[in-house]
Design a protein around this nucleic acid. Structure first.
Length: 465
DNA sequence: CGCCCCTCCTGTAGAGGAGGGGCGGTGCGCTACT
């Protein structure tokens, strides 16, 4: 029966890993948290459920660009009644979309938009068949210290007769899954968890004494190695600087970060997808919704603050199943940068001042978090919450530090953070006999993507060194 | 931590160095202004 629906609406004969299990549970009216690897068709889970139930589906998505992509993709597939309710719409378009909301089969929106009373009233008045939280790890990753509207979902979803919820993600620790269930008010949800280990991604770690040595290494490596690849940096400025350095080698690169305009970001992403840009130098802004299959290298100029974000960032490589190399470059001073990036919570003093109504200069982010806490907690509760949050960030940081220092298998260290087991393969990482950036290893990795005509040129450059 | 920007100092004119201070990452929607 479900198989027939799959054939009828999508033209596929068989389900992929996890899809049938998730859809079956949803059709039985259960809530589901599904950790499915990227590229296994997460969106089919809610698309087919919506079609079978014949009632509108609400999809809560973290990025406007992601919504736009999915709407376009669904329209291409022949779904006509699809809308993205967000700030891209003009006032007129917005009013019109709102008035016709019950006529749509799939409604995409942001957690922020759900704080709009008109939107909420409209959605409550219509018979939703399913609520989807796309990229659900954002609840945990962003909700607590960046986008509190993710946590406001807890209140929003608490209404009589709400439809089943499915939370979809590709990367989540058991703690994050517990947090997702708590915020979404679905403690009894079924959980589908796929293995997250990606043995085709080899892990390399390199230590340096100065930042300049890292830059030299990157210059040397990228100028002799074919992409496509992504270099993650810890600041916008450094991304721009590195891009500048690499341009001197006539490599097609682009810097991508929060300071780049929306139009340029879209252009860069399209060019990267089309192999017109070979290397992207980016902050953590880059990656979500990038469905490029042949990424061969992920280099971290500075380690990600958490192993969850590291896993997500390297997980963008090798979606075609061929080998890829993820390299993290480390110096002692990185710890301070990482700690700085984690220690951004409002202080206890700020909380007390805020609750006392005292005038104090606040950064916009602190203002936002304090306003949220004030709406939810008493002063002592807010302080307690803040300190708990600090401790959990501390623990996450300790795990990151351990990855940077351990002499154990890097893959095992990473996968164990997600409380899963690992299948160690030969030369899986620096600590298991992977050749570090020796000439031979470079050539082997380079050899994996030889379709690019520049390849022979690059080889000559390497041989001349 | 390391970096960049700003101010101050020097000693009478201008630029360059010292030193203090702040910043560093992720996005939505809205409003006021061009």
């Amino acid at each position: 029966m479900l198989q027939q629906a799959l054939q009828h609406y999508f033209g596929y004969a068989n389900f992929r890993q996890g899809q049938e299990e998730v859809i079956t549970q949803l059709l039985e009216g259960k809530d589901v948290v599904a950790l499915l690897p990227t590229g296994t068709g997460k969106s089919l889970c809610y698309q087919l459920t919506g079609k079978v139930k014949g009632t509108p589906v609400l999809i809560i998505s973290p990025l406007l660009s992601l919504m736009q992509d999915q709407v376009n993709q669904m329209k291409k597939m022949g779904f006509k009644r699809v809308v993205a309710l967000n700030s891209f719409l003009t006032r007129e378009q917005f009013t019109q979309a709102l008035n016709q909301l019950p006529h749509y089969e799939f409604i995409f929106t942001s957690p922020e938009m759900l704080q709009n009373e008109l939107v909420t009233n409209k959605l409550r008045a219509m018979p939703l068949g399913l609520i989807v939280i796309d990229e659900a790890h954002c609840i945990s990753e962003w909700g607590h210290d960046f986008r509190p509207d993710y946590l406001r979902l807890q209140t929003w979803l608490n209404y009589y007769n709400r439809p089943p919820i499915v939370a979809l993600t590709a990367t989540a620790t058991p703690a994050v899954i517990a947090d997702i269930k708590y915020v979404l008010q679905m403690e009894h949800a079924s959980t589908y968890i796929a293995a997250i280990d990606r043995k085709e991604i080899h892990l390399q770690r390199k230590w340096f004494t100065t930042t300049q040595e890292k830059v030299n290494w990157i210059e040397d490596y990228v100028s002799t190695t074919l992409g496509p690849g992504i270099i993650y940096t810890s600041s916008r400025k450094r991304a721009e600087q590195l891009a500048e350095v690499l341009r001197k080698w006539h490599i097609t690169v682009a810097a991508y970060h929060g300071g780049v305009s929306n139009e340029d970001r879209q252009l860069i992403q399209e060019q990267f997808l089309a192999d017109d840009i070979e290397w992207i130098i980016a902050t953590s802004a880059f990656g979500m919704g990038v469905h490029k299959t042949n990424i061969r290298h992920i280099i971290h100029e500075t380690m990600s603050p958490t192993l969850s974000s590291y896993m997500q960032e390297i997980g963008r490589a090798a979606r075609d199943g061929q080998d890829a190399l993820a390299t993290v470059l480390c110096t002692q001073t990185d710890y301070d940068v990482l700690q700085f990036l984690m220690d951004t919570l409002p202080s206890e003093h700020m909380i007390k001042q805020y609750y006392a109504g005292a005038d104090q200069p606040l950064r916009e982010l602190d203002q936002r978090l304090l306003a949220y806490w004030h709406s939810m907690y008493r002063c002592d509760e807010a302080i307690h919450y803040r300190n708990q949050l600090y401790l959990s960030k501390r623990r996450a940081f300790d795990a990151t530090r351990n990855y940077m220092e351990t002499s154990a298998c890097l893959r095992a260290t990473l996968v164990q953070y997600f409380e899963q087991s690992v299948q160690v393969v030969d030369a899986c990482c620096t600590n298991c006999g992977l050749q570090d950036a020796s000439f031979k290893e470079l050539r082997r990795i380079t050899h994996l993507s030889t379709q690019n005509p520049h390849w022979t040129l690059r080889l000559q450059q390497m041989l001349l060194k």
